[in-house]
Design a protein around this nucleic acid. Structure first.
Lengths: 357, 357
DNA sequence: TTTGATCTTGACATCGTTGTCGGCGGACGA
DNA sequence: TCGTCCGCCGACAACGATGTCAAGATCAAA
């Protein structure tokens, strides 16, 4: 910008929008140095009352707002009071509950949240994280989609707190807040078996997702605890949308020897399964336990039994780890497990052929 | 920092985390000036191949990442390639769908989103917006909670694009993407009347919210079009949670002359009403139309008829307005209406006492 | 070989702000 | 009256990066 705009027109309602006023403008108008203006704006002591007044008046007149970015460049090593949340999809209930929990903790400290959706795309995960790093996020919360996050080693080493949520870090050593997917899935299976089921189908998300693998593992092992070997026909992986799940369930019941119970390993899969069962008119015969709770699960017919995760607690825990690190506390990276909780609502208690009662 | 940390230890796994490398570190290591390093990092032409290689190697070795904040300070008047979204609550479906739509449009331009939740608190709205402004957001998307946003005049005048979504701006003249709440509510009422209802109750959110007022207005006028004067007992305002709504519905039906149909003017209110009706066992007798769609509405018994808004379209439109302004396009602020769409699913078609069929 | 043009390169100022530090002036004690 | 101390203030450098510009280096043409 070589040619300046005609200096200081009417500060309000000018046709060509004036650039944002800077501290220099304020200082000029108040007849003090920028440093003194800075002192006043930051409420530092040791400024004559008259100048304080002059500066405050200038601030008001110009509508000055401090540039926090520039300020933080000088202030503390460029901390920006912003943390990044790399989520699966800001608009899905799990992610957004997590997001909200982070925000709630961050709010008290005047920290803002950058959020972005990865959509299970490893490429996008990297791109997002790099964008956040470039913007100097003070810390990063990651729900990982890629199969290795070694690329984050530099950041971790540079002292940027990183916390993985829901899915374990691979290739780097950082804090994680996880769910015991294995145990949760096993609990679902035990519950179904206890209600007289042996032909239990597994419907799960992309096998590329660590949590999906763990849930499947828990499913298999729990079955084998009961001496049950699952039929390969009763296992469907890589279901990532409601539609996928719906089709998979239709397929299950169009085959011979359909299952008497379903274990759905994820949110949308559960909903897709509910849709399909409803469509088939079998929602009151086929038992269903889903992993991950969802709004209105209690209002469906039958109400859906779930293994509930607690994204809110997970988010709060993740945030507190972040802030403890930012406050200088140190410890060796740790995995924190947040327990799951089975919520029996009805669909999981539909008796199977081996029911004793 | 007077005493430098022992220069360049092992770049990985050092005990005391090294500060993030800067361009200066890269330049030093590569034996070039910072400016040349800058040129290489930014892929500018006119650098000798040997130096390009040296710089790139240094970048790799140090794990250098450009500081976008610092760079944008000098680059374009401090544009940060970030836009702010001031939402009601990042974890509610409407807000998060909006958020996601903004993100989708912004993503293509390498722009990130700052999101924050206001929770209908005017104080928090101001605080959030000021925090975003201080962080130099390039533009602001606002779902307003306060009764005047005159405090934004300075920003608007400084050329920061501001778009209001869902609720109209008060006290300032900016673009807005709104829903015709009046018409939507009226459509709901006409629908219910057409199905034989005359005793229709209104259950709505905080009257401080403009959209709630408009919906109530639409409700009243539509009724009066049919020559119906609503009973004061059938009107409940200021319901902001499911619980509020649930209690209000219980109250409605504990009185004499309960309504035969409900118009619920908001998401959570609708769900609360469904809960209450279910609890009372009247969900198959009392008609219900809700404003704003919600996930699984189609799976409830009966499926819930709604006046659907389209947060995704609204978000995309808002984002496109933002980016057109950021690209320098100019026009006088305009209100854009995104149409509502009635989705008849069952609950709204339960016949009333005056049904003709 | 000289001239002029082109290509590379780094010194320097700058973005908006704050930390450092030294200077000025008045108050106070000796 | 003089010296000190303290309160107040601003010049300056710095944060990390890039725009400007002019100085060398290089090379082609004369």
């Amino acid at each position: 910008m070589t040619q300046d705009p005609p200096a200081h027109r009417a500060p309000v309602h000018s046709a060509t929008p004036a650039r944002r006023p800077t501290l220099r403008d304020v200082a000029l108008l108040a007849g003090v140095s920028t440093k003194t203006a800075s002192r006043v704006v930051n409420g530092e002591a040791g400024v004559a009352a008259a100048k304080v007044a002059a500066v405050q008046q200038a601030v008001g007149k110009l509508g000055y707002r401090p540039n926090f970015t520039a300020s933080s460049l000088r202030r503390l090593k460029g901390r920006t009071a912003a943390i990044a949340a790399v989520l699966e999809d800001v608009s899905n209930p799990f992610s957004s509950a997590l997001h909200r929990a982070l925000e709630d903790v961050a709010r008290d400290r005047g920290v803002m949240i950058f959020a972005g959706s990865v959509d299970e795309d490893p490429e996008r995960e990297r791109a997002l994280i790099h964008a956040f790093i470039a913007r100097q996020a003070d810390a990063i919360v990651v729900v990982a989609a890629s199969d290795s996050q070694r690329y984050l080693a530099g950041e971790v080493n540079a002292g940027t707190p990183v916390v993985f949520v829901d899915r374990p870090p691979v290739g780097i050593d950082v804090d994680a807040v996880l769910v015991d997917n294995h145990a949760g899935a096993a609990e679902a299976v035990h519950h179904l078996v206890a209600h007289g089921h042996r032909a239990i189908a597994y419907l799960g998300d992309l096998l590329s997702i660590a949590t999906a693998r763990q849930r499947f593992q828990g499913f298999k092992e729990a079955l084998s605890d009961h001496g049950i070997r699952p039929s390969p026909d009763h296992i469907a992986h890589d279901l990532h949308t409601e539609g996928d799940a719906q089709r998979a369930v239709r397929r299950l019941f169009s085959g011979q020897a359909p299952p008497t119970a379903l274990f759905t390993a994820q949110n949308l899969v559960t909903i897709g399964a509910v849709r399909a069962l409803r469509e088939l008119g079998r929602h009151h015969e086929v038992a269903l336990v889903g992993f991950d709770d969802f709004p209105l699960a209690d209002l469906l017919q039958p109400p859906v039994t779930v293994i509930a995760q607690d994204p809110s607690t997970m988010g709060r825990l993740a945030a507190s780890l972040i802030f403890r690190r930012l406050d200088g506390e140190q410890w060796t990276p740790t995995v924190h497990f947040v327990p799951t909780r089975m919520v029996a609502r009805g669909s999981g208690e539909i008796p199977g052929p081996y029911a004793t009662a």
